[in-house]
Write a protein that binds this DNA or RNA. Structure first.
Lengths: 341, 341
DNA sequence: GACATTAGATATAACGTTATACCATGCTAT
DNA sequence: ATAGCATGGTATAACGTTATATCTAATGTC
């Protein structure tokens, strides 16, 4: 039932002034060992916790960092969050995560709330249909921001991403070397920056290697959607013998679809994923995928934000890391439809 | 480069006083349509966003709610977060998520930060080794709190959980009816409230049905851990023909382990999971599991917090929902080890 | 012994809001 | 004409901190 303790309460109990308590809490100023002890004692007794709002308002500093992300539940994102948190917490920051579900309106609410709370910095995976206004509001409020994965048109922010076009090309090329000629791109909806780049790489290598016409099949980024999409795709384009997917979840679903058709991934149909989530190595058959280490990507992301926060007028940095072709069991040489060659 | 806009800036530009702007923003007080228009115009021009810290400090209200959770990346938790967010955002609240990784020290930092920011309410999955002190600090600061899944000893908070003991007993009983006599409990580490309850139910039904001695096998709550644990378990107790698992991830891993031994889940070894995550229905073979709807659980959780926030001195409520046996393909009648009966 | 220096503390104002109380008007009723 | 009352707005203080300036002893210097 006790009143919420404040600096004043503590000061009274310790028999000192308010600024003294404040200085003890922060370890600044000149304080004798004797009064320090007295104050800390009072703090303990009252369970005093400084009010971060008042503090950050007055000092203009906030050790809380926001991570506005498109889907918390995506395992890839979840691992990124781990990497980010581990590094930032070591530096004394706190990371709180806001999920937009890729909904631009929800995202706008979150960004506003973020600004309203005067947070120290922002990590941001922009929602797919992010309007220019969202960028503007962040710049006018001078929020240190680093975007992740998706980089909106004309963004003035630092960025950590993936070499999507190159990675996809590498994957398709590998499939071509295995003898596949009808290679589809499976997964994703709408035209996010990421997907556009990947499809760009896909088309580029297709024409470069003089393979067939591009086949692009939309679906959401879940296993179930991948499963259904794979079935539908094989119905529409039965000549397809290999797919490269927009993400591991889709790829894992696609494998289930292949199995469901009585075939075997890596035999009749080859499947390549993207991300290398934990499950990829563990599922059966183990998924061939374009691997990036989400945990380390998270650390890099956090690091870049720290730099930006320390040096507000650094030139804008864009850091794209490459993905590595990780060959497992869902890819294999082309086998002719029936009988032997 | 413009200064950060405040009520003062807006007031000056609109040619009115500070309180007037404040009232327009909140839609309170008596304001003529004419000045309202003027003020809103100025707000738009300056991209003014109210400072939530100042506001919540003065008014004692905070529309931000924290969800301190043990593992964001757990798919079950991720779906709960969706349910929570959807409901609370509809009510005008903002949900920010903090991940403890089941680490008591990290959890303490998060709870302190939570209090420091004077958030409106707390949803909390306590870390496994949560000390009494963590409960104390929340009560002394009078934070409206609802715990989820795990209920610490002597907790004074509202709670939403699962009828763990009963659910586990139902699952084991079903396995027994299929003819299984050697049924192991697989998964979990340490003795969280949840696991204790489930094991309690497991042992109770075992003695009630006069089945064999309990076999309890620890492992972390991931697919990979489940896989390895299953292999080890079969090594140590080859007579085991059925397992009930601490969670779907473990169960899915266990199935992989069974497959890896050249056997088939639902045939030689039956597996039951817990939670019914999205993957459970989609994996092959589809997982039999004790289903609770995480999304709806999340909504219920959110609702309970809202009640508590509105009515601070309501009696403490504990709401345990029951899980439903959802039979799919990983359970089947006992088949004798070799040859026919 | 006068003066500067330092250690150890404090008084005061400010951060951007909102709650409360108050003050002008103009209008109605008598 | 004047009390009474809405209507539309403002002055002021307070929320809990921290930055800045200031103050008092005690110590050191010559």
């Amino acid at each position: 039932m006790a009143e919420k303790p404040t600096l004043e309460t503590v000061a009274k109990r310790a028999g000192v002034s308010i600024p003294t308590v404040s200085q003890v809490m922060r370890g600044t100023g000149r304080i004798s060992e004797k009064t320090r002890k007295k104050v800390l004692q009072a703090v303990r007794e009252l369970h005093y916790v400084p009010d971060a709002r008042a503090s950050s308002m007055r000092s203009g500093q906030n050790r809380e960092i926001g991570f506005v992300i498109n889907r918390i539940s995506n395992p890839f994102n979840a691992e990124v969050i781990s990497g980010v948190s581990d590094l930032l917490e070591l530096e004394g920051y706190l990371v709180s995560v806001l999920d937009t579900s890729d909904d631009a309106e929800r995202q706008e609410r979150h960004l506003e709330a973020f600004i309203a709370n005067g947070r120290g910095g922002l990590l941001w995976v922009p929602a797919i249909e992010t309007p220019q206004a969202a960028l503007d509001i962040l710049t006018t409020h001078a929020i240190p921001t680093v975007t992740f994965l998706r980089r909106p048109e004309g963004s003035p922010f630092d960025h950590v991403g993936i070499r999507n076009a190159d990675a996809t090309a590498v994957g398709v090329k590998y499939l071509a070397e295995l003898g596949h000629r009808n290679i589809a791109y499976l997964g994703g909806t709408g035209m996010s920056d990421v997907r556009r780049k990947r499809i760009e790489g896909y088309k580029r290598i297709l024409t470069e290697l003089r393979l067939g016409e591009p086949v692009i099949w939309d679906c959401h980024d879940t296993k179930l959607a991948g499963l259904n999409a794979m079935l539908a795709l094989r119905q529409a384009y039965p000549e397809t013998t290999a797919v490269i997917c927009n993400g591991d979840m889709v790829a894992l679903g696609a494998c289930l679809g292949v199995i469901g058709s009585g075939l075997k991934p890596g035999r009749e149909v080859s499947v390549i994923g993207f991300d290398d989530v934990e499950d990829a190595a563990v599922s059966t058959p183990a998924l061939t995928t374009m691997a990036v280490s989400p945990y380390h990507l998270g650390r890099r992301l956090a690091l870049m934000l720290l730099n930006r926060m320390r040096e507000r007028d650094m030139p804008v940095t864009v850091s794209d890391v490459s993905a590595e072709l990780t060959i497992r069991e869902t890819t294999g040489p082309l086998v002719p439809p029936q009988g032997r060659v």
